[in-house]
Design a protein around this nucleic acid. Structure first.
Lengths: 343, 343
DNA sequence: CATTAGCACTTTGAATGCAAGAGTGCTAAC
DNA sequence: GTTAGCACTCTTGCATTCAAAGTGCTAATG
C-alpha cells in the first residue's frame, strides 16, 4: 500500500499519536494531541483526520468514546516512514560498553551478559542467539573417550566457538583406534565449513582404509546429531521480569502464553532467526510474527558477525515499545559485539 | 517443640484442615471439617480445638470470620508427623518412565527432560541440578587448540559428564607443546577426583620438566576457572508457567520477584543445594527458605547419584502444595535417575 | 465437665446504582 | 476547509447494600 500518500497532516497526527501512546500506554484522544503537540489545529480537525486514519486501518478504537490506539499496521507505517531514530545517550553507551566489555571465559558468557544488558537498557526482554555454526570453518575435531562406549566429539570452529556432542558406540573402542579416526577426520575435514562438511562428508570419508570403518560409520550415522545445531542451548534471555510489569500483560492468559514461549527456547530461537541473517535492523510487529503467543509483541533484531559466522541479537517487548530508541540500542550493541568477536 | 504432645483430636483436625486447604486453596471453617471428615464431633467443638491450634501457632486467621489456614509451622508439623505419603499411580509411573527413558545425547538433555517431567506431573516448577563435579573422577584431560592463543580444556569425568573451558594463552602455543602438556596432566591427574585435584594440583605438577612450564603455569593459574563449577549452567527448570496460575501468585509483585529469582539461576541453584547432599527427601517450607522471594514457596528435593557424584532434583511450588504426592514423585524420579545414570 | 446448640457479631465479596470524566461524531456556523 | 458546540456513549471510581461464611461466646445438655 502506498502510505506515502498520507498527507503531511495525517503523518503528523499519526506520529504524535503513536509517540504519545508509546509513552503513556493509554488511548489518546484528540484533545491531548492538540494540547501536547503544537500542530496549530483544533481537536475537531484532528478528530476528522483520525477518522480517516482509522478507515485506513492505521489506528483503532477500543470502544466508542475512548481515544485511539495504533494498529499493527499503524506501527508499521510509523516504523517505516515516520520514525526518526533516537540516539543513545553518552551514559547509555558507556553503560553498555562497561557491562559487555568484561572478561569472558566463553562466547556463551559474553552472549548471556549481552542479553542482560539489552534487557536492562531497554527494560524489555533481551535475547541473543549464538552464531549459526553452518558457515563456521572447522579447525579441529577431537574424539575423546569419556566412558565405556561413549565418545565425546569436540568440534572447534574458528573464533573460539566450540561444540561438543556425545556419541554412543556399539562396542568398546580403543584409544588408538580413536586417534587414528580423529586423524583421518582432521585431515579430510578441517578448513571446510560445517555446512560443506554436512553435505560432502560421505564422499570425503568413503575411500579410507586406515581408520576403523565402524567408527567412521558411527560418525557418518551421527552426522545429523553432530552437524545439526539445534538453536536451543544457544539462546540467551535476559529480563523476563520486565515484561511482567508491562500493562499489556495484565491479562493473565497473555502473560502465561508468553512465558510458555519463553521457556520453549527452541521455538523462540526459530522465530527470532526466522527472518534469516540480514544486515541492519529488522523489525517485526505484532501479528507479523507468526505465533499467536506473540501477537501483542514486537521484535527488534539485528545480526552480528564473528568472523565468518553470524548470529542474532534483539529485543522482545509489547508492540507498544520505544522503537526509536530500541533500534539504536540493538544496532549499537550488535556492532559492539561484532567488534569484540572479530578481534 | 514437642508437637507429639498434640492430642489425637488436634492431630486429626490439623490434618483435615491442611488436607482440605491444600485441595481447595481457600480458608477452611469448622463446619466444612465437621461435614467432610467424619470425626464425630460438632463444629463448635472443632472451633474450640482450632483456637488451641491457633495459640500454638500452627494455623491462623486471615481476618476475623474467615476460616483458618495453616502457618509454615503448621505445615512443618503436618509434613513431619501427620502426612502419609500418597503413592504414585501406575499411570503416573509409566508416564515418568516413558518420558525420561528416551535417548539422550548428553546428561544435560536428560536433566532438562527430567525437569519437565517433574513439572508436568506435579503441576509445579520442576528443577534439576547437574551432579557436583567435585567428587567426580577425572578420566581424561584434553587440550585443544581452538584459535590462536585459545585453548579448549576438556575435562571428562566418569559416567558421561563433560566440562569444557576455554583458556587464553599469552602467546601462540604449538600443538606439540600442547600434546606434551596434556600427557603430563593426564598422567598425573587422571583417576583423582576433581576435588582432590583442586587441592593438590600444584604439588603434583611442580617437578615436571618435559612440558612447557608456561603452559603448566597457565593451567595452574586458571584452576579457579577450571575446577570451580558454577552451578549456573547446570540448573534446569521446567514448568515456569505452572506457577503463574497458582492463586498464591495473584499478587503481581510476588510473581515478579519469584520469576526474578528463577532467572537468576545461580542464586536458585545455591538455594536448592544449600541443604547439601543427603539421602532421602528434604522439605523446606516457606520462611525456612532463606530468601524473601520464596517465603510463600516450599521446596521438595532429593539427591540422585551418577556413580560417585551426585546432584539434586526437586520441585518448587507454593507452600500449599500436595506434599504427600510430591514426596513420592520426587523420590521415585530421583531413584529412576540414579538408575539410569549408574548403568 | 466436656460437648453442643444457639445467637450476636464481623468481615468479605458480589451486585447495584450513580455521578464524573473522557472522548467521539455530527451539525451548523465561521 | 476548519472549528465550536452539543448530544451521546462508554468507562471508571465510589458508595451502598445484602447475603454468605465463619467465628466466639454463653448457656444448656448428657
Amino acid at each position: 500500500m502506498a502510505f506515502e500518500s498520507l498527507t503531511e497532516r495525517e503523518k503528523a497526527i499519526l506520529q504524535s499519536l503513536i509517540d504519545y501512546y508509546i509513552a503513556m500506554a493509554t488511548p489518546v484522544g484528540s484533545r491531548v494531541i492538540a494540547n501536547k503537540y503544537k500542530l496549530g489545529i483544533s481537536p475537531a480537525t484532528i478528530r476528522n483526520t483520525m477518522q480517516d486514519l482509522e478507515e485506513m486501518g492505521l489506528i483503532s478504537h477500543p470502544h466508542t468514546s475512548a481515544g485511539r490506539i495504533p494498529t499493527d499496521k499503524g506501527y508499521r507505517v510509523y516504523v517505516d516512514t515516520l520514525l526518526e531514530p533516537e540516539e543513545l545517550t553518552y551514559f547509555e553507551e558507556e553503560q553498555i560498553k562497561s557491562e559487555i566489555l568484561v572478561d569472558y571465559a566463553a562466547v556463551e558468557d559474553l552472549l548471556e551478559q549481552t542479553s542482560r544488558v539489552l534487557a536492562n537498557v531497554s527494560n524489555q526482554l533481551g535475547i541473543t542467539i549464538a552464531p549459526r555454526f553452518d558457515q563456521g570453518i572447522l579447525t579441529r575435531i577431537n574424539l575423546i573417550p569419556v566412558a565405556e562406549k561413549k565418545i565425546l566429539v569436540v568440534l572447534a570452529v574458528k573464533h573460539g566457538l566450540v561444540k561438543s556432542v556425545l556419541l554412543e558406540a556399539e562396542s568398546n573402542v580403543k584409544t588408538e583406534a580413536l586417534d587414528k579416526a580423529a586423524n583421518i577426520l582432521n585431515e579430510r575435514l578441517c578448513g571446510l565449513t560445517l555446512g560443506e562438511i554436512k553435505n560432502s562428508m560421505e564422499q570425503r570419508l568413503k575411500d579410507d582404509s586406515t581408520a576403523d570403518p565402524k567408527l567412521i560409520k558411527l560418525f557418518l550415522d551421527s552426522s545429523e546429531n553432530l552437524l545439526n545445531f539445534p538453536e536451543t542451548e544457544q539462546l540467551h534471555l535476559g529480563g523476563t521480569t520486565n515484561i511482567v510489569d508491562q500493562p499489556e500483560f495484565k491479562d493473565r492468559e497473555k502473560l502465561k502464553s508468553l512465558i510458555e514461549l519463553i521457556e520453549e527456547k527452541k521455538l523462540l530461537a526459530e522465530l527470532v532467526s526466522a527472518k534469516g541473517i540480514r544486515d541492519g535492523i529488522t523489525i517485526t510487529i505484532g501479528k507479523e510474527i507468526e505465533r499467536g503467543e506473540m501477537q501483542y509483541c514486537s521484535l527488534v533484531t539485528s545480526s552480528y558477525r564473528a568472523g565468518k559466522v553470524s548470529g542474532t541479537i534483539g529485543i522482545i517487548g509489547p508492540t507498544r515499545m520505544r522503537y526509536a530508541k530500541l533500534i539504536s540500542l540493538v544496532d549499537y550493541t550488535a556492532k559492539l559485539l561484532s567488534e569484540i568477536l572479530s578481534k
